[in-house]
Amino acid sequence: MTNEDALNLIFIISDNIDYEVNNNLVTVLEKQNHTIQNFFRRLKFKIPNYKKIELDKYSSFVFLQIDGKKTVEEIGFNLEKAYGDDSHPLYERLLVFLNHIEGNCKYIERVN
């Protein structure tokens, strides 16, 4: 994939996750419904239904920009506009983050 291809990627938030937004910070709620967890719940162990993952201000900003319309380049531009030099190296970090939440976490999906 070329740099131009990477900057033209468009993502959408997966339908399989739940999240909350509080003061522009995102908390992802991962459902804990593994067979073993459900078994122990029936035995009255206190196992929460969701695992909460709190994103920092940069990750939350990027996550909230993902709408199925904005390209990676547009998200990066908005991130730099909001946080200036604190967001640098911009596209290297942004692409690593997006690849992580797409490939490992399955929070987002590619549209194109």
Rank of each mutant, 00 (worst) to 15 (best):
T2N: 14
N3K: 11
E4P: 00
D5K: 13
L7I: 05
L7H: 11
L9K: 15
L9G: 02
F11C: 08
I12P: 00
I13H: 07
D15T: 12
N16K: 14
V21M: 03
N22K: 13
V26M: 04
V26K: 03
V28A: 07
L29I: 02
E30D: 14
Q32G: 05
T35P: 11
T35A: 15
I36R: 12
I36L: 14
I36H: 10
Q37R: 13
R41T: 02
R42Q: 13
K44F: 10
F45G: 00
K46N: 14
I47D: 00
I47C: 01
P48F: 02
P48D: 07
N49I: 01
K51E: 11
I53D: 11
I53E: 13
L55A: 06
D56P: 00
K57W: 03
S59G: 12
S60L: 05
F61K: 09
Q65E: 13
Q65Y: 04
D67I: 03
D67G: 03
G68Y: 07
K69W: 01
K70D: 08
T71D: 10
T71P: 05
V72L: 05
E73F: 08
E74Y: 06
E74F: 04
G76S: 01
G76D: 01
N78Y: 09
E80H: 13
E80P: 00
K81H: 13
K81M: 11
A82V: 00
A82C: 02
Y83A: 04
D86E: 15
H88C: 06
H88G: 01
H88T: 10
P89V: 02
P89W: 07
Y91T: 01
L94Q: 03
L94R: 04
L95Q: 12
V96W: 09
V96F: 10
L98S: 07
L98H: 06
L98V: 06
I101P: 03
I101E: 07
I101C: 09
G103M: 07
N104T: 10
K106E: 15
K106Y: 12
Y107G: 05
Y107H: 12
E109V: 10
R110G: 01
R110D: 01
R110H: 06
N112I: 04
